[in-house]
Structure formats: structure tokens, C-alpha cells
Write a protein that binds this DNA or RNA. Structure first.
Lengths: 220, 220
DNA sequence: GTCTATAGTCCGATAGAC
DNA sequence: GTCTATCGGACTATAGAC
């Protein structure tokens, strides 16, 4: 079953204080405003005044609640990875058959990213490279997701095959899926096709077919 | 044969006045400085002072030669697409066999992007979305490359197959290749593998294998 | 906790000397 | 054609009233 909640709702349900009660509404408003603007314009191109204006709060609320503009980015990263871990921790790991397990993993990754696509684009493309703290955190978390949740476990059974370039087939699969979300705005400009619900009913299995046929034949 | 010239040399050989003689060296220096900084930090995060400083010229030279900071971006786009057209206009279009032709097209695209990877990343990820002029130009030029040079011609022979989702298999191929270049800095952080000359001796054929096996089986 | 006002810095662009 | 000096504005962050 596909979770059709939007990013904004997801933030709302996750930004809570430690006790579990809802925190002040202003923090949520700033986060949602920032996510939408960072997604659309990029982190550097978005000003704190603009974020505050769209959230209908004063600029100083950003520094009060997040410390700095960078603090918003850190919180976005925390939320994104905690959500990805939640969405990816599902049924496919128990499946014994390699092909079925990989297919489930692909679908699980696509669905999880679909629910967090704005934050995903921000984190993949808009972390300033001089922010080593966040760059390193992103690398660590991506590694965990890709290797622990998707990749290593799923590819058990190929380990004895000779000459397999995991450094190619791994990024190739990530590349198909990641670029779909990172370049989503460009696809309609180029192909004149729509990415709607109908599309996503077909897409995950179609991608899994192509990839699995290709990789399985290559590995035989 | 792979052209091993770097971006900086490529700019040097292409920034010429209409008569064909070399223009002033300063314009080249600014372009190369800007390409390296835009590639590394992004367009918005890079200031004109920084570009000028790295090029060892004065800030006002940017406005004199390019009109504005945006003017540099426009010139980068012009150069990139003219180079892509040059590099892609090669032998594979004449090949009759579908599989061989597609394989050659994939290798041609990878090699062309490899020679222009800095400009490619800038153009794909760092054009401000409110700059509709450049956004539209990019869409038009990408369409030309993907459909005229790579895609439509190469997929003749599939046209009568039923139920083929060109809107999926097209972006899937572009996605594998594009994301390799767009996320190049991330790959070593995640996979602990190196992207060196040895890698590129294997990579194009490996990708072509996986994709062709997958798509051909899917289409049968 | 939330606001207004502003400090202090950096931005892109340009005037004007040579 | 290239430079130095500087304008006017936008930026992030913060001080201080309530």
C-alpha cells in the first residue's frame, strides 16, 4: 500500500519534542517552508528572509529554533534518514529467493524515496561541500542504507561469481533510481511524458525487470 | 581513442573570436576559474570576487567580458552543447545492427560526457530555475542530443513492439549514465572504489551489457 | 517565545582613471 | 582592455523590547 501523505504532513507528524507532545507550530512551518524552497531553488539560493516570509513568521525565529540557516539543513537530514530507515525496514529482507528479494528491495527503495523526494534532492544535491560535518554524515547514512538495507544482503548468492564489478552494478541501480528523483523536473521537459500515479503503478516493476534481466544475464 | 584533454584545455581551444584568432587570455582564465568553482561549489555559492581572484584578474573583467555573472553561465552552456554535438556526431549512426548501434551510442555518450563532465554537472544541477531562458535552452538542447543523436535513431526496430514504455527505458539509460557523472564525488565516499582510467576501460561496455540484456529481454 | 530593528558582512555591478 | 574604488542592496545573525 502506498503512503500518499505529502512531505509537509510527514514533517508535521515527526517534529515532536522528546516527550512526544507537539512542539510549537512555528518550527514545523519553518521546516516545511525551507524544504519547499531548498527543493525548488537550492540551499544557497534561498535566504532566511524568504523562508520566514513563506512560513509567515519572523526571521529571528529561524535562529531561535534552529540556531542558523545551516541548522535547518541538519534537521532536514536527520528527519530524512530516520524516515528512510523506517520505510526501508520492511518485509523484503526475509525473502529467500534472490530475484524476488532484489525486486522487493528495488520497489521498497523507490517507494521510500517517493515519500521523501524533496528532502532527498536537497540532501543529495544541496549540501555545501565545505560543510564536512554534513557531507560525512550523508556518506555514512547512505552507506548504511545502501549496504545494510538494500545491497549486501540482497546480493548474497553472487559472492562466488568471478569478475563481478560491484562498483559498477551497484551504482548503476542506484543511478537509475536516484536520477529519476533528482532529475524529475527535467524528464517532462525532455520526454513530454507525465510522472503521475499511473506512472508509478508501472515504474518499479519495469525498472526491476530491466535491471534484473540485465544483471542476472551478465552474472551467469 | 579517448581524448584525454582536460576541461581547461578544451575551453582554451574553443574560446575564439569569430575570425578564428585567439581572444584575450583573460576571458579564458575567467571561464576556467568559473567552471571549476561552479562545479565544486555551485553557481549560487560562488561569488564573482572569488572567480576573479582565482583567475588572477580584476572583478570588473567579468562584467566587461561576460556582462554579468549569469553571462558566464550562458557561455558555459553554449560551449558545452557545441562540444557535445561535436563529440556525439560520430560513427555509430551508420551502424545497421540495433544492438551494436546502441552499444556504440552508449559508449559515445559516456566518452563525450567524460570530456565535459564539469560543464555537464553545472548545466544539469546549477542553472537557477527562475532563469527561464537558460532552463528552456537546456531542455531544447538535451532533447536534440537525446532524441536526435542517441535515442530515436537507435531504437528503430522496436517501434512495432507493444507496450514499450519509452518514457521509462529512455530515462533509465540516461539515468545510469547521467548519475554516474552527477554523483561522481559521492561514489567513492560510499563504495570505497576508485574511478580511474582502469575503471573507464571496463565501464562503458559493462553498462551497455546490463542495459542491453535487460531492455532486449524486456522487449522480446 | 516571538517580535522589530539593525549590526556587520558580502554581494553583483559600475564609474572613471589610465 | 584592464585596473581600483565604491555604490546600493541583500545577506545572516543578533540585540533588545514585550
Amino acid at each position: 500500500m502506498i503512503d500518499t501523505r505529502k512531505n509537509s504532513d510527514i514533517i508535521k507528524s515527526n517534529v515532536r519534542s522528546k516527550g512526544g507532545e507537539n512542539i510549537t507550530n512555528i518550527k514545523e512551518k519553518i521546516l516545511n517552508s525551507a524544504i519547499n524552497l531548498f527543493y525548488k531553488k537550492g540551499f544557497e539560493a534561498t535566504g532566511v528572509r524568504e523562508i520566514a516570509k513563506k512560513a509567515k513568521v519572523s526571521t529571528s525565529m529561524i535562529n531561535y529554533h534552529f540556531g542558523s540557516k545551516n541548522g535547518i539543513l541538519e534537521e532536514i537530514m536527520e528527519i530524512f534518514f530516520s524516515q528512510m530507515n523506517e520505510y526501508l525496514d520492511k518485509e523484503h529482507v526475509k525473502e529467500k529467493d534472490l530475484e524476488i528479494r532484489l525486486r522487493l528491495a528495488i520497489k521498497s527503495l523507490i517507494n521510500a524515496l517517493r515519500k521523501n523526494e524533496k528532502m532527498f534532492k536537497i540532501i543529495m544535491l544541496h549540501i555545501p561541500e565545505e560543510n564536512t560535518k554534513l557531507v560525512n554524515l550523508r556518506a555514512k547514512k547512505l552507506k548504511e542504507i545502501i549496504f545494510k538495507k538494500i545491497w549486501i544482503d540482497d546480493f548474497k548468492g553472487f559472492e562466488n561469481s568471478e569478475g563481478i564489478r560491484y562498483d559498477i552494478i551497484g551504482p548503476a541501480l542506484s543511478g537509475i533510481i536516484f536520477s529519476h528523483f533528482l532529475l524529475k523536473d527535467l524528464i517532462p521537459q525532455i520526454t513530454n511524458s507525465n510522472i503521475d500515479n499511473e506512472f508509478y503503478e508501472v515504474y518499479p516493476d519495469y525498472i526491476a525487470d530491466i535491471y534484473l534481466y540485465g544483471v542476472l544475464k551478465k552474472l551467469k
